[in-house]
Computed example of a mutant assay.
Amino acid sequence: MKRLASLALLAALAGCASAPQPASQPAPRPLYRDPVLDGAADVSLVFNRGLKRWEMFYTNRRATLRLDDPRDVSWVHATAIGIATTDDGNHWRAAGEAAFPAECTGATLWAPEIQDFDGLYHLWLTVVPGVHERWTGERRIEHLTSTDLRHWTCAGRVDLGSPRVIDAAVIRAPQGGWRMWFKDEQGGSRLKFADSPDLRTWTVRGPVSDLPGEGPTVFRFAGQWWLVADLWQGLLVLRSDDALHWQAQPTRLLAGVGRHPTDRAKGQHPGVTVVDGRAYLFYFTHQGGEPEAKTDDRWHQRSVIQAAELTVQDGWLSVDRDAPPPDLRAAFKAR
């Protein structure tokens, strides 16, 4: 009897080993476009522990707004933060707009940065008071907290010594405390960093690059710290052992244009999420290279979210935007 049971178990195991594996299913291209304003950009992904699903917070720009003056940039003002969610990881749907306390935010909100530290969600949000026709006005970074990603509490304005700061990226620093990277527009639009022992008081420690840029994202991957940021001519890549001293990658990512529809523009404002040892890059592309732009002089305002997978080649980050998008089901499906 024991011999028969053992043979049956071996046969079952052999059957499992030879069973066909689920076929890879690339995510759509684009991964996501806002169904109302068609101006999704600047994404930050976070796992909603209460709903047991991944969510994407993004700048919801008014890309369908038609303005008489081509230099008028009020369409990127009066912007809410949109939320998209997914059940299977590959297909994302709109889930409304985020609601924040009026006392610490405003009409124009950009570049959400969400981190889950010790069971509490932290959001660093760029706030631009008012609506501007030109790239003028104050910019500041506000810190908010939440237990459910829906109800937020003001946790204080981040004092970084400048009236024009945007695009926070925050990690728990290897040396202790927390570290933030941001763009200082008053300081030549350079990327700077600051340290904090408590997420309330911050000490600016200087620039990380002499190049102007924005939208930094910082993450741990393949045994290194990486900083990726938007230089408006491709993505800057910096590498570090300690998230403090950096080396610049010789080449930029996504500096050219892709071959596939909706991806025929340089990649901008990256967000990277590392899951199970794999790094997924989320970026936006303007739609000026699409056929619709030939007959619609405002089509270029539209932007969509694309997904690609980062790999390490010869010690540096690499991405193939023309390859099929990654299958995101294993990493980002609902649990």
Rank of each mutant, 00 (worst) to 15 (best):
T217S: 10
L254D: 06
K183Y: 01
L123P: 08
K192I: 03
H132V: 03
T251I: 11
P207F: 10
L211C: 05
G161A: 05
K266E: 13
G130L: 00
G156N: 08
D184T: 01
Q249V: 12
T147K: 04
T153C: 11
R179I: 06
G234H: 05
I141M: 11
G258K: 14
R164A: 00
L149P: 01
G177E: 08
K183D: 06
H260G: 15
E138S: 00
W246C: 09
D242Y: 08
R164M: 00
T217Q: 04
S162I: 03
L227S: 12
L125C: 04
G161E: 01
K192T: 12
V228W: 02
R172H: 07
L149I: 05
Q224N: 15
L191K: 04
L125S: 03
I141W: 02
E133T: 00
G156V: 13
H245P: 13
L254V: 07
G188E: 02
R200M: 08
F193G: 15
R205Q: 07
I141H: 06
V228A: 10
R157D: 03
P197T: 00
T203R: 12
E214K: 15
T201K: 08
V165W: 00
W202N: 01
D241A: 13
G137N: 01
S146D: 04
A194R: 05
R157T: 06
F182P: 04
E138G: 00
H151T: 06
T153D: 06
D184A: 02
L231V: 10
P129Y: 06
D263C: 10
V128E: 00
Q175D: 14
L227P: 13
R150L: 12
F221M: 09
L238Q: 14
